[in-house]
Write a protein that binds this DNA or RNA. Structure first.
Lengths: 202, 202
DNA sequence: CAATTATTTTGAACGGTGTTCAATATTTTT
DNA sequence: AAAAATATTGAACACCGTTCAAAATAATTG
């Protein structure tokens, strides 16, 4: 019967949960194969029957983090607001999520793939929703922009927002005073949104 | 004689050069203590007499990278231009440096300190020049802003520029098409600069 | 210039890492 | 119930950064 499949899925789930807990608590750089397998209640080698790699397991954790972020941003979304306000809301929502789930959020970016082995396509696709929800208010702001240009601009905007947040929260460089992060982020978003809007009238 | 001091400095220099070459070629995550020491022509333990750590050696490489960036931006600086144009120039200069020295540039940020051991103060200070040269055009743009606010804004601006560039060049997330990076960066800078300027007139 | 002391350089050894794989245990099929 | 197919196990492996007693070298002394 499908008992095999069942146990296999159960093991994968247990490993995933154990890894997520460990990452949330100690950060992705402190994740150890021996720790997760012990937490999950299987032998060391069991990890490699459920996932190809410790890296692969981390990618799956990141996948759940992205889903949680998606959920979080969807909740924070407000209709009946100006596109600028919607962008402001998204940026604040992203910041709020990053603060509330710092280690899981950091794992999305810290996780450096070995060599030139890029993330698998299915995981890269998961990033696209982020860009699509940014692109939507942009469309209202600059309706005459081509879809391609708008997609590029959404990436630019995300990069800027993420850069501002990460330089402060990751604290590996000279960041902002944390208490001023919200306002700075907000002002920059408004500047860019206004810039986009004025460009339309030009 | 000062023969001791002399040899010691020579070893430090050889290790530094070997490490920089290795990082530039293979990336900081592929730097191995056994490789650098072999390249530098000393025993494995020699590294730990010259530097406290492999991490410490990497920080010193990063220090030279920052100096090179400083040099590069100073050359690119143009007087007799509008503050907006100077900011545009700085952003393009930063991009150009990142492209030309990708692995060394990435090492400035990839390098994750273990636990909560922050970078030493002398190295953090080296970052400040970057912010100071951003703050200068900002002063012209918004002369009524307090020095502190301007310092914060400079960090924000750097975070945005760095975020846009790194999300594309580090390719660990969904980045921009590389050929559009220059223009996007430029347009965002102009938007923010114009936003800052218009705020002044408000 | 020895002889002695102070310092540096060396590299085998240590503890910890991710990963593998023959042996064992388990589930499925016959 | 026996046999075949599969999954789980954990000792062993290769590699990593780091340490530290021993060997080599430099400085000082008589």
């Amino acid at each position: 019967m499908g008992r095999r499949e069942e146990k296999r899925e159960d093991l994968k789930a247990r490993l995933l949960e154990a890894a997520r807990d460990r990452i949330a608590r100690d950060g992705v750089s402190n994740l150890r194969a021996r720790d997760v397998t012990q937490d999950a209640g299987c032998a060391l080698g069991g990890l490699y029957s459920a996932y190809t790699d410790l890296n692969d397991l981390i990618i799956h954790v990141n996948s759940t983090t992205l889903k949680a972020l998606e959920q979080s941003l969807a909740v924070a979304e407000v209709k009946d607001k100006s596109p600028t306000d919607r962008l402001r809301n998204l940026a604040q929502g992203y910041l709020k999520f990053a603060k509330a789930n710092r280690n899981l959020w950091k794992a999305l970016f810290e996780h450096s793939l070995p060599e030139e082995t890029p993330s698998p396509q299915w995981h890269l696709n998961e990033h696209l929703f982020l860009l699509s929800i940014i692109a939507e208010p942009l469309k209202e702001l600059q309706p005459d922009m081509s879809d391609e240009d708008r997609a590029v601009r959404a990436r630019t905007l995300f990069g800027a927002v993420h850069g501002i947040i990460s330089i402060t929260l990751e604290a590996r460089f000279v960041g902002l005073p944390p208490e001023r992060l919200e306002r700075e982020l907000d002002e920059i978003i408004v500047m860019i949104a206004d810039g986009a809007a004025s460009r339309r009238e030009k």
